[in-house]
Design a protein around this nucleic acid. Sequence first.
DNA 1: CACAGCGACCTTACACCGTAAGAGTCTCCC
DNA 2: GGGAGACTCTTACGGTGTAAGGTCGCTGTG
Lengths: 223, 223
Amino acid sequence: MVLADSGGIESLSMRKLAGELGIEAMSLYHHVKSKEDILDGMVDIVFGEMELPSPGEAWKTAMRRRAESTRAVLARHPWAIAILDSRTTPGPATLRYSDTVIGYLRAAGFSIPMAAHALSILDSYVRGFAMQEASLPLDPSGSIQAATESILEQQPMMSNAFPHLGAMAAELILKPGYAYGNEFQFGLGLILDGLERALATENGPQRGDAPAEGGAGSQSAAS
Amino acid sequence: MVLADSGGIESLSMRKLAGELGIEAMSLYHHVKSKEDILDGMVDIVFGEMELPSPGEAWKTAMRRRAESTRAVLARHPWAIAILDSRTTPGPATLRYSDTVIGYLRAAGFSIPMAAHALSILDSYVRGFAMQEASLPLDPSGSIQAATESILEQQPMMSNAFPHLGAMAAELILKPGYAYGNEFQFGLGLILDGLERALATENGPQRGDAPAEGGAGSQSAAS
DNA sequence: CACAGCGACCTTACACCGTAAGAGTCTCCC
DNA sequence: GGGAGACTCTTACGGTGTAAGGTCGCTGTG
């Protein structure tokens, strides 16, 4: 079901979907309540494709892998990005996913509020990045040069009216080897480092003894 | 033009828009090439509403204000979030906005690659957060309690099958005073602090930045 | 003044969309 | 045999974006 859809664009209609299945549009309504139902199911499948952290991993690498997996899944299903959160009736895979990640963070020593912070910032960043990436006019190689050039050509006054934009285009984006996708790692590392610091601060800069948890990884006690 | 649209939902159609203006649908096509044209213009207006940093401000406060302004504007025009980036022909306000911000960062000591990093992470985060926030079922007070409760009620096995999700709902989200919007500040501060550190590292560690607590942290933030 | 040109507006029409309503048809179980 | 579903179909309605072309009234020029 999803196969046909993610292959095509989000121009899937009840009639086309039915055609794909060899039946008529209205027959679909005996299996689903509405098109919203189908979208709900598709979103749940997308969540099901995301990699879950496996126990025993250090939380930082686990969260990094989770973020990269999410980005990869969303790149595979760009249509899903805009509707991921807007489903008001989360499916089982969605709930399972959230529950597992929260449980993982808690086991790694995150308090409940800190886990909520971490979830919020990571998901906002990953989905925001996926959104920007999905809407960039990339050629298959993942480069953005061609599109940038065409904008520059359209606007020859670019370097006059918008000097900094022009400079960034000329000196960074148009350089061979630049791919916007690489920006992902920088931001992800920055956020994970920031979370590590926040976690250390929370877990007691004062009398930071007895960190009872078998928390994964980095204990850099405040000096 | 935008007034009518952002007030209503994204269910604006050529016919409704024409009706708002007292004319017929097809008459619009004498002023715009297509509906895409209208969306382009609307997106540009949205960019125009965003606050630009004023010279002389410290870059951190300037970027914080920019992020908060962007979030406020996108909260005012939720329909814009999903299509902000997908416009392939940026309008003048959009270009001006990007150019000013880049110029501002450059003046504050960011190299071109570092400015690109900063733009990418800030915009991804802010837009991702705005997206999540916009799709949350909030009551007018900005709280999420009612919706959370209804999900919990629908799924009484929540606390069994999804214990961590249930715990976070019970001990954080359902507590009076919790509002998801407050998560924004945490993530924004974390990112700005991270950028500050990355900037200091880039600009040469000769300026003793007292990296005492950084310990042997990961250097994945290096450019 | 007359008149051509043109831009703003209109009507009509087409192919698509989600789906409400209801009418077969087929298979299984008592 | 005879329900009882489950499944599919046809028909129809009100919506969408927009292609094609018609009808005004204003304006510039002679």
